[in-house]
């Protein structure tokens, strides 16, 4: 069951990573004219449509991660400490705190992505999205590294 949960967690994290990366690229480098190639089309996505999906994916992925964390704490983490993989342990520790702080951003993130957001708050929207993307990228990479050091079930 733990392996199925890890795989599901990883797949959901991958979807979340794709959605938030699309969104962050589109807020920093929006396409003004018609999209003509792959990169331009990547930048031209309707990023406002991703908001609810990102919030739901974040909540489900974090909840699954929270369940898996109990197993990590009594198996993989101990082995990583015994093996002196301190940087991997540290990166995972930071991940847990980033995910927790990311939860605090979600109501504001949702609000500032509403179509009626005024021009003065566009920078807040952009920076909240960027911070959320940073959190998701860090969490994905730190989780991936920890899984490579000692995957649950190995």
């Amino acid at each position: 069951m733990w392996i199925a949960l890890v795989i599901t967690h990883g797949l959901l994290a991958f979807l979340l990573l794709g959605a938030v990366t699309h969104q962050v690229v589109s807020v920093w480098a929006p396409v003004r004219a018609g999209a003509t190639n792959f990169v331009a089309r990547y930048r031209a996505v309707g990023s406002a449509h991703y908001v609810n999906a990102i919030i739901v994916l974040y909540l489900i992925t974090a909840t699954l991660g929270g369940v898996l964390y109990t197993k990590y704490r009594i198996t993989s983490r101990l082995m990583m400490e015994l093996g002196h993989y301190w940087k991997s342990v540290g990166a995972f520790e930071i991940k847990e705190h980033l995910i927790a702080i990311g939860l605090a951003l979600l109501p504001a993130y949702w609000y500032f992505w509403r179509p009626s957001t005024n021009a003065g708050d566009l920078r807040t929207r952009k920076l909240l999205t960027t911070l959320l993307a940073f959190i998701i990228w860090w969490a994905f990479l730190a989780g991936h590294v920890a899984n490579n050091v000692r995957g649950i079930g190995t």
């Binding site: 705190h97 605090a104 504001a108 807040t124 911070l131």
Partner: peptide, 12 residues
């Protein structure tokens, strides 16, 4: 409204 990202960045 920028406090919504600034304070979390400081906390991180």
């Amino acid at each position: 409204s920028g406090l919504a990202w600034l304070v979390p960045v400081c906390s991180i």
